[in-house]
Nucleic acid binder design. Structure first.
Length: 546
DNA sequence: CAACGGTTGTTCTC
DNA sequence: GAGAACAACCGTTG
């Protein structure tokens, strides 16, 4: 893993090595990646300091793993967000330049063509972005371009959290909370640039450029807009801020919010669905945090981990672990991940992905995911448990790929972290708590209205059988106009049987793990050993910073 | 080393 | 609707 240099230091080092006199008037490029917004964008503000020309750019990189495999819903969200950004920049007498290619090829051309002296962007902790940054920063140096990076995608600099925790990422929420509390409140968001800030700043753009740098349409990206689902969550900062305002008006709801009590199968979302906006940075997490603080002010309110503040801290938790744990999105080589002998079963995997497991609750959720690009967190639990330790015994990495493709809020760190959680591979270890694909949904939707919405073939089934239609007598199936095995699949596994078998396989995996730890620490076989030291082992190469 | 707590399990009994 | 059994994990704490 390449060592991360705290963002504030990068800016400083390169400023001094760029050779630019302090009073130099800059030609700045601001590189939008995540952080698709004007509000709380410190790197963008830095670009505008002592600046004569600003070029806001977005690079469509064919190499970005989760862009290459993104669903049409994700592309629609992203292009929507870019259009919104372009529109907002135009109100500031600027514009967005969308470029295609690898950043390390695009930027040297831009540096020369525009005579760039400064490059600014938001820190992105994903491994792919880190690799890119290393290359781009090096190229900038070669072109005598100053680089400024700012932390604004997370509440805190994740490296600071790790440093405060003796060089190790916190592995429990409580620990993260304790560390974060010692850091004080997150920084307040910075205001968006104004026309005042833009005085004396130009964005030169010829008519030819106007066309070649515009935000591509879905058709231009080779996608068929008709194959997309309904646009329930349009991308963009304006939409994000509007939605934030709407939710923050519901002060009672905000103050009482307790995540585990929200329903996974409500007919309209029981949570805010601001996650896609936070993922792409259309909404700043710090703006979200401080707006919640305003609402909480002087009122009795719920607390982390279940509160809305708590939800943002969960995000911080997985961002931090993803920075501190190598191979975070894989089982192999991931020191905190349980090593499990998952089955390879392409038929079962396809049935799960394509919503034909024969369990209506599971299939309804997978249908909503594909059509709308968002499902409730607990719905994710249900289908993730089903794919992995609960029923199909398929690797969480397979589920991770499907979610990455289909979820509008498919954040790299959160996706990997939550899949490890749900498969009881890391963070969560009570593997004997298994979600029932039949019972779980009934708690909040007894008559199966949610199932009927997403699986209309089952809409005439009576409530008694809607969660397990294969149990319905033939006459009931005929009256419902749906014969199980013909119009809707039979269940691909017997949950009662496989969930018990799988529980034993999990037990085996865990016992094998403690044995491995003991051996690697030179202890006698069977001797119990504290698992906490696994991370100590992993981290001992790292220099402690405190 | 033992006790404790862990966002969000299910099923059965009272 | 509350509480216990089910089978029993981990990381943290003292």
């Amino acid at each position: 893993m390449s060592p991360l240099i705290p963002a504030h230091l990068i800016g400083m080092c390169l400023m001094s090595s760029s050779g630019c006199p302090a009073d130099m008037r800059h030609i700045s490029v601001h590189w939008f990646r995540k952080g698709l917004r004007l509000h709380d964008n410190p790197a963008l503000l830095a670009a505008l300091q002592d600046c004569t020309e600003i070029y806001p750019v977005f690079v469509l990189d064919p190499g970005v793993p989760n862009q290459a495999h993104a669903s049409i819903n994700c592309w629609r969200f992203l292009t929507g967000a870019l259009k919104d950004l372009d529109c907002s920049l135009k109100k500031l007498n600027s514009r967005l330049f969308v470029l295609r290619g690898k950043p390390e090829e695009v930027f040297p051309r831009l540096f020369q063509r525009w005579k760039v002296t400064r490059l600014t962007f938001e820190l992105d902790t994903e491994p792919y972005s880190q690799d890119q940054d290393e290359k781009v920063v090096k190229l900038a140096k070669q072109h005598n371009v100053e680089v400024i990076q700012k932390v604004s995608h997370t509440l805190f600099d994740t490296e600071r959290i790790i440093a405060k925790n003796n060089g190790k990422p916190p592995l429990t929420f409580n620990r993260l909370q304790a560390v974060v509390q010692s850091l004080g409140a997150p920084e307040k968001p910075v205001p968006p640039p104004t026309l005042e800030d833009m005085k004396g700043v130009r964005t030169p753009c010829s008519e030819k450029d106007e066309e070649s740098y515009k935000v591509p349409t879905l058709e231009e990206l080779g996608l068929d807009p008709l194959s997309a689902g309904p646009e329930l969550y349009p991308g963009g900062e304006q939409e994000a801020l509007r939605r934030l305002d709407e939710h923050m008006k519901r002060t009672g709801w905000v103050c009482h919010f307790q995540k585990p009590e929200t329903s996974p199968n409500a007919l309209s979302p029981s949570t805010t669905v601001l996650s896609p906006y936070v993922r792409y940075g259309c909404l700043s997490v710090r703006t979200f945090w401080w707006r919640l603080t305003d609402v909480y002010q002087g009122r009795k309110h719920s607390q982390p981990p279940v509160s809305l503040h708590g939800q943002l801290l969960w995000r911080e938790f997985f961002y931090t672990t993803s920075v501190g744990i190598p191979n975070f999105n894989r089982m192999e080589g991931n020191p905190i991940c349980l090593q499990v002998d998952w089955d390879s079963n392409p038929e079962h995997l396809a049935a799960w992905r394509e919503a034909r497991t024969g369990f209506p609750f599971i299939d309804a959720i997978m249908t909503q995911l594909r059509q709308e690009g968002w499902i409730h967190h607990l719905a994710r639990h249900a289908v993730a448990c089903f794919l992995t330790r609960g029923d199909l015994w398929i690797s969480w990495e397979e589920g991770q790929k499907v979610f990455e493709e289909l979820l509008l809020d498919g954040d790299w760190a959160l996706n990997a972290g939550n899949w490890q959680w749900l498969s009881a591979s890391a963070f969560f270890h009570q593997y004997y708590r298994v979600y029932s694909p039949i019972a779980f949904g009934k708690k909040t939707d007894k008559s199966g209205e949610y199932i009927k919405k997403y699986l209309p073939i089952l809409k005439k089934f009576p409530a008694d059988y809607i969660y397990e239609p294969w149990k319905a007598p033939r006459s009931v199936q005929e009256r419902a106009g749906c014969i199980v095995g013909k119009d809707y699949p039979r269940p691909i596994v017997d949950h009662e049987v496989v969930s018990k078998e799988n529980m034993q396989r999990m037990k085996m995996a865990y016992s094998k793990r403690s044995k491995t730890f003991n051996e690697s620490n030179g202890k006698a076989k069977g001797e119990k050993r504290k698992a906490a030291s696994v991370v100590d082992m992993l981290m001992k190469k790292k220099v402690k910073v405190n």
